[in-house]
Amino acid sequence: MLIDCPWCGPRSVEEFTYRGDGTLKRPALSDRSIDAANAYVYDRENPAGDHMEIWHHGNGCRSHILVKRNTLTHKILSCELLGPYSAGRKK
């Protein structure tokens, strides 16, 4: 597979490590509910189709990338940078 790292450009999948489901939202620090924490840690949608997932460019710029990929065809539909420099965040 070829992942289009927003900073480095398209790179072979061997430079990345898979960091799992990209839709998980960690409960707020103040949230002490065990159920909310359990859901965050254990529940996975695991869809057969488009899947939002996170890849770490460990052997590149070491940023995290939110990738939309189809789990039936492996076709990658979008790549977006996460972290302080993510486009979504206010600069």
Partner: peptide
Amino acid sequence: SRNSAHHQIG
């Protein structure tokens, strides 16, 4: 410049 790796050696 590029960051990459050989054989897991960054």
